[in-house]
Design a protein around this nucleic acid. Sequence first.
RNA 1: GCCGAAGUGGCGGAACAGGCAGACGCGCGCGACUCAAACUCGCGUUCCCUUGAGGAUUGUGGGUUCGACUCCCACCUUCGGCACCA
Length: 821
Amino acid sequence: MTTDYQPQKIEPKWQKKWEEDGIYEADIDESQPKFYALTMLPYPSGDLHIGHWYAMTPSDARARYKRMMGYNVMFPIGFDAFGLPAEGAAIERGIHPREWTYNNIERMHGQLRSMGAMWDWRREAASCDPSYYKWTEWFFIQLYKHGLAYRKHSAVNWCPSCHTTLANEQVWGEDRHCERCKTPVVQKDMEQWFFRTTNYADELLDFPTIDWPDRVRTLQTNWIGRSEGADVVFRTEEGEEIPVFTTRPDTLWGATFMVFAPEHPLVNDITTPEQKEAVEAYKQQAARQSEIQRAAVDKEKTGVFTGGYAINPVNEERIPIWIADYVMMGYGSGAIMAVPAHDERDFAFARKYGLEIIPVIQPEGMDFDGETMQEAYVGEGKMINSAHFNGTVVSNEKGRANPGISKVIDWLEEKDMGEEAISYKLRDWLISRQRYWGAPIPMIHCEACGWNPVPEEELPVLLPDDVEWLPTGESPLKLHPTWKETTCPACNGPATRETDTMDTFMCSSWYHLRYLSPEYDQGPFDPKEYDYWMPVDTYTGGIEHATMHLIYTRFFHKAMRDIGVTKGPEPMLQLRNQGMVLAEDGEKMSKSRGNVVSPDDLVEKYGADTVRAYLMFFARWDLGGPWNSGGISGTQRWLRRVWALYTGTNPEGEPDSGAVDTLRRKLHLTLKSIGDDFEKFEFNTIISSLMELLNDMYDARRAGVAGTEAWAEALDIYARMMAPASPHIAEELWTEVLGKPYSVHDQPWPEVDEAATVVEEFTLIVQVNGKLRDRVQAPVGISDEEAEKLALASEGAQAHTDGKEIRKVIVVPGRLVNIVV
RNA sequence: GCCGAAGUGGCGGAACAGGCAGACGCGCGCGACUCAAACUCGCGUUCCCUUGAGGAUUGUGGGUUCGACUCCCACCUUCGGCACCA
């Protein structure tokens, strides 16, 4: 009667039935604990690739496991559907971005269904849908009304290939390239919309209530880049204030010159006529350089004297002001006090240009001389050359924890020369994009009234359909003849709409909220759904979003909490990152390299259950690694053997003594470890445990266990344990082969029978000098003395202790005996 | 340069509150089934040698310990992130 395992037949059948029956539809149910399992939403590129499968199927398996554990689990899916590739298709092939996007979504629906995941399709959301971006616009207005969205003129990152500005987080790597298209960005002076992420810098550094990987916390912490120190006000000779930020106010007496960023607004005022030419030349060169990119990493410092002087407030010293491109306009105040004796960069600069070096911190037993110092001293010591602070101890601590720094800050504040200050590397989030396919920024500009938000009752500001793309790559919104013409909400006079759209990371900052109630039209989400489901319990996705999406979405949540829209400190309680599946050659998969692994082909050949299991099995989920096409036959064989075991004929015979206990013990130990592994996201060992148990079940069947109660129990539990990883075959075996009530996915996770795992005997390891010499069977609970006796008497021990003096015997109860000779 | 992660058979990987290294799988070898192949099944598979009561072995070198893949110190390699951040 044995038929072959035919996934191509069973899988579509069950997928259809599960969806028709709505078994994965999760609704509010106060009688059950809720579990919101979320996986990062895909961009509708048109093809679900193996990386999506690698990210999603273990997340699905774990959501299924949680469901069987008695949680009311919601596992939604949707599309991050705005973005540039759709416009690329429009330019290249003349297809409207909407059409291209929805065609792709349609195709990906099929692919997502082929996975056999427990998506609740009723909760699907696509960010490009007007019913969605209406609320993206609405959120913008809330941020604007609460002073968290603002417009400013500044130097911004421009991607010449995408024809748009980018946020700081979206510029990557040494060559400062666009995160999306890898083109090096250039600097442009533009007026743009920003969100005040920096208001939340300190709160974003705090991860008290969430279980997130250290790696992500570290990346975010470094990205936010908090430094403690002081703002100190220097002055020009004319009395103009020059605020500077320093982390080392204790070295103020060693400031022998100042350095301004070339773009610093005071440069023109302080430059003397004699220096004008040199300064102008340097400024131009610096501007050009930032455009060509600063190629050299360790390039030599350059700079030019402005001819101007500043007064150091602590000692009234007159010090020269230079400009140099190692000072950035975007950090601190764009000007620094230079203390060459105690800062490596300032030291290099001072030596090169022959500037004075005055040591002000000195460790015990040293006698620094500015003329002869070989390098900057950055360690601890006592203050010298610092007036009444001489002798003050300076430690290696940062900020207030350092007694020297702390005392100087107190004194500066007392004398009104400066104050304690904290500086961050984090910049405000630039959200304007000069693109068409994004959520419109719902703002209107009027010559008379300035900027005003579109009245909320007029939302959404819809994207116009009749648009044209020029080969220049410019946004069609700007070029549209009438779209931007409107009236001012304040004075009713003629006004123009903002033609920029929002960064798509704004859309993805709140998609987990739209999933709650994608049809809801009284607000971005139904508060009842929010109160039941939020926060997200488990969030899975790639590490590459550590300093982009994952910072933005935390900011968004906190800002909205302060505005009164969301609740609680954090949106996602637990985060786990999967690794990346590389191509078989160890390189990144890409169409141009031709090394892409297609999940569709694999599903067609092996079935979804095999692909799912292999993705869970072939690598550590958090690390990923190169694809190995050969290995998949192993998981395919496993499922075939499972099938054969359930559908084959069993040999006649009575069970061997002990075989039943052995099987039950293994069964329940496996059950226990699989549960632990699901909790810990260790998916590879889940599959290997199932394989191991299967081997033991074959052994048990050979030993005549088939037909016993324990055998029936094993078949029952095994099918349930497989259900999360390989849902289709589990259902077929459960419902059709075992004839149990549909559906296996509505069954509770089996309970571990602790009694079954108990053993009477164990293998006692006998070591001599830490080396394995024998193994003997011993009863559980054996006394240390008995164990020692047993070990000493063993053959292996005898051979290695013969004629030697036994110095010591260590007994580890229930494990081993180590004899030291 | 700074921060972080990872180094275990031919390969992917198991095992770490310190206690049998190499589970599970791929690959490979031998055998069974077959006219043959595929499938399937069984056995074997860390390395070395003088083949046995043998030795070595978890990137390298030290250390702690009766005992180290696991803890500590130093270093090497690979991969990610940041990069003149004052």
